[in-house]
Amino acid sequence: MGNYVLWALLACIAYSFVPPLVRVGTREIPSNVAAFISNFVLIVIIFAVLVYNSESLAPHVTANGAIYLYLAGACLGVGILSYYRALELGPVSIVVPIFAMFIVGGSVIGFVLLDEPVTARKIVGVVLGVVAIYLISV
């Protein structure tokens, strides 16, 4: 198992706690404020990791690839604010599967725009992902 798989599993475990925590938190705190608070904690953690690893931001903020990260940040901002609002208003058991469609969307974008290899197994996986998300959310 590759090192990236362990990181992906850790991300999955950690992120699994986000929706229920946001749902409980937004009972008393507006979703936009909740997004700010949780993402402020995120920024503090990332800053600590950068310092710990002696990584500098300066040479990267104007690098050629930075524009993609700025665009990703804009998409992430819209996505997080929308996700938090949905969790404030609706049940976790329905919001999370709908939100999880980003996995299917990201896979399709990878196939179409990044020329990642498309195999029958991957197509079946994407279709089964859609079916699973549908079954969970209805």
Rank of each mutant, 00 (worst) to 15 (best):
V108F: 09
G105R: 00
C75I: 07
S56C: 04
I94H: 10
L57R: 06
G73N: 05
A132S: 11
P91I: 00
E116I: 04
K122M: 14
Y70K: 05
I123K: 07
L71N: 03
G77R: 04
I103R: 00
E88Q: 15
Y68R: 10
F47N: 07
A100V: 01
I45A: 09
L57V: 04
V127R: 04
V124N: 01
V118M: 14
P117I: 09
Y52E: 02
A66L: 04
R85Q: 13
G79C: 03
A120N: 01
V118P: 07
L57Q: 03
L50C: 10
N64D: 15
L50Q: 02
T119P: 06
L114T: 01
Y83E: 00
L113M: 15
I94D: 02
S82T: 12
V92S: 07
A132V: 02
S56P: 05
S107L: 13
A58I: 04
A100L: 10
A100C: 11
V51Q: 10
S93R: 00
A72H: 04
I123F: 08
P97R: 07
F111Y: 14
Y83K: 01
V130F: 13
I46K: 00
L81G: 01
L81S: 03
T62S: 14
I80E: 11
G110P: 07
V131N: 07
L50E: 03
A63S: 15
V51K: 10
S82Y: 07
G105I: 14
V44L: 15
I94C: 03
T62V: 12
L69R: 08
N64G: 15
L76I: 12
L89F: 08
S54P: 01
